[in-house]
């Protein structure tokens, strides 16, 4: 493992560019439209899981309501584009901001809640959003949903085809990773992680935990909204049942399997869960049993997830004490 890591750190830029190039040619190599659609789903859920990971994995809040923020983004996009003909690319940030506002609304009353209590509230909030979408007929179309969401413009390409829509998801995914990576390696990201690690200590060092928790919630919700906005034209038709808590738990499963608190984790999780979902279709609803088994196994055997380091707070809070080498001790005094 350490060899792989060393290799990665040495050739980081080249490797990442290679992966990006491979992803770019993927829809032209894979000719079967269905597989490209799966690839789109993987990218979509990778970013959605990433947005949840920004909350759960970094500031240690236990949010289960990502489906709600996702729904906000999708509905904002659907409503504004079908009724007012607003451009898709303009709607991406607008959806994000709408979702972030709702995120703030959820965060503010729950600042003092932690762990399971916060989970319950966020779960409730997600359900409330879904039920509003289902019942507010004049705006959301109620149970009938919203049809014929226009396909976005992408350099004149025919985004009706997943082959080209793929690039919208890829763009959002890459943007998300770049931005999140920068945020995490800054004062803000450190403040989030310090809250995850020890809230009292963070406070005693002057980190305004309430502010940073709210900011963290808004950040996660923002990206969920953006992904929702990209999702609506992709499926062309949205209705409330697409945003049930099942979706929320699906995304949660991705970050648990992939590894919370790492940027790679949600991507791996999304790949695994999506591939399983599609390849196990013949089992119908029984595949959920398989999910459950996988999640339980993961929690048991590798609580930090596949990509998670063994020295992670999520690895059960245990730390393996290794003898620390004192290299170069003399030169630095």
């Amino acid at each position: 493992m350490s060899k792989v890591q060393a290799f990665y750190h040495k050739h980081r830029t080249i490797l990442l560019l290679a992966v990006f190039a491979a992803l770019c040619v993927l829809p032209f190599v894979v000719t079967k439209a269905l597989f490209v659609r799966y690839a789109c789903n993987i990218l979509l859920f990778a970013t959605l899981a990433g947005s949840l990971n920004a909350i759960n994995g970094y500031s240690g809040q236990m949010c289960l309501g990502q489906a709600g923020f996702f729904a906000i983004g999708a509905y904002v996009c659907a409503i504004f584009s079908t009724r007012f003909g607003v451009n898709f690319w303009l709607l991406l940030p607008i959806s994000g901001v709408f979702a972030a506002m709702v995120g703030l609304l959820v965060a503010l009353p729950t600042l003092k809640l932690q762990g399971i209590y916060l989970s319950i509230v966020t779960l409730g909030a997600s359900e409330i959003i879904r039920i509003i979408a289902q019942t507010w007929e004049p705006v959301t179309g109620g149970a009938l949903g919203i049809k014929n969401i226009p396909y976005p413009w992408l350099f004149g390409l025919d985004t009706f085809r997943p082959k080209y829509y793929y690039f919208i998801f890829l763009l959002i995914g890459v943007l998300f990773l770049l931005v999140t990576n920068r945020v995490l390696k800054s004062r803000v990201g450190r403040a989030w992680i310090s809250i995850r690690e020890d809230q009292i200590a963070a406070k005693s060092l002057g980190v305004q935990t309430s502010f940073y928790k709210s900011l963290n919630f808004m950040y996660g919700a923002f990206w969920a909204g953006v992904v929702g906005c990209a999702y609506a034209p992709f499926v062309n038709y949205i209705e409330a049942s697409q945003f049930s808590t099942d979706t929320g738990f699906n995304v949660l499963a991705m970050i648990v399997i992939g590894g919370q608190g790492t940027l790679l984790g949600p991507i791996l999780g999304s790949m695994i869960v999506t591939v399983l979902t599609e390849s196990l279709r013949f089992l119908d609803n029984w595949r959920y049993v398989i999910y459950a088994v996988i999640i339980i196994m993961m929690m048991w055997l590798r609580p930090q997830g596949i990509a998670g380091a063994s020295h992670s707070v999520l690895a059960g809070g245990k730390i393996k004490r290794k003898p620390v080498r004192r290299e170069g001790a003399r030169s630095h005094g």
Partner: peptide
């Protein structure tokens, strides 16, 4: 001991500099 156990020593100290710096999320992005 209320350390940030899963952060490196340097990162621990960096959080101590939090109040002495101002950059926000947009600065970071």
């Amino acid at each position: 001991l209320q350390l940030f156990k899963f952060m490196t020593v340097l990162e621990n100290v960096k959080i101590g500099c939090h109040i002495k710096t101002k950059s926000n999320m947009f600065d970071a992005i």
